[in-house]
Amino acid sequence: MPEGEARPQPVERVGPPLVADERTMLRAYLDFHRATLAVKCEGLDDDQLRRAASPPSTLTLLGLVRHMAEVERAWFRRTINREDVPLVWSERGDFQAAYDASSASGAEAFAAWEAEVAAARRIEEAAASLDVTAPHAKTGEPVSLRLVMLHLIHEYARHNGHADLIREAVDGTVGA
Results as ranks from 00 to 15, higher is better:
Ala98Met: 08
Val143Asp: 10
Glu124Met: 08
Asp31Gln: 15
Phe76Tyr: 05
Leu152Lys: 07
Arg51Lys: 14
Thr24Gln: 08
Glu108Phe: 00
Phe32Asp: 00
Arg78Asn: 12
Ser57Val: 05
Leu49Ile: 02
Pro142Leu: 05
Phe76Ile: 10
Asp131Ser: 15
Asn160Phe: 04
Ala109Glu: 00
Gln9Leu: 13
Leu147Arg: 15
Ala109Tyr: 02
Ala20Cys: 08
Glu125Trp: 08
Val148Leu: 09
Arg158Gln: 11
Val65Tyr: 01
Met1Glu: 03
Gln96Glu: 15
Asn160Leu: 04
Asn160Pro: 06
Leu147Trp: 15
Trp113Val: 00
Tyr99Arg: 09
Val14Ile: 14
Ala28Thr: 12
Val88Asp: 07
Tyr156Ile: 00
Arg34Ala: 02
Thr173Asp: 11
Glu12Ser: 06
Val132Ile: 11
Arg167Thr: 03
Val174Gly: 05
Asp164Met: 04
Ala74Pro: 09
Leu165Ala: 09
Tyr29Arg: 09
Arg7Pro: 00
Gln48Val: 11
Ala118Lys: 04
Pro135Ser: 13
Leu64Glu: 00
Pro56Ala: 12
Lys40Leu: 05
Asp94Leu: 12
Gly15Arg: 15
Arg23Gly: 07
Ala69Lys: 03
Glu141Phe: 15
Pro2Ile: 02
Lys40Ile: 02
Arg77Glu: 15
Ala120Ser: 11
Leu64Trp: 01
Lys138Trp: 03
Leu61Arg: 01
Ala98Tyr: 14
Gly106Lys: 04
Ile80Tyr: 03
Thr60Phe: 02
Leu165His: 07
Glu72Ile: 00
Thr139His: 15
Ser90Val: 14
Met1Phe: 10
Ala38Arg: 11
Glu91Leu: 11
Glu116Gln: 08
Val132Phe: 01
Val65Asn: 02
Glu22Asn: 11
Val71Ser: 01
Ser105Ile: 01
Glu70Ser: 04
Thr60Leu: 06
Trp113Arg: 03
Arg73Gly: 05
Val11Trp: 01
Pro55Cys: 10
Ala157Pro: 07
Glu22Gly: 08
Met25Ala: 13
Val19Ile: 14
Ser102His: 09
Leu130Cys: 11
Ala97Asn: 10
Pro17Met: 09
Ala97Ser: 13
Arg167Glu: 04
Ala120Tyr: 02
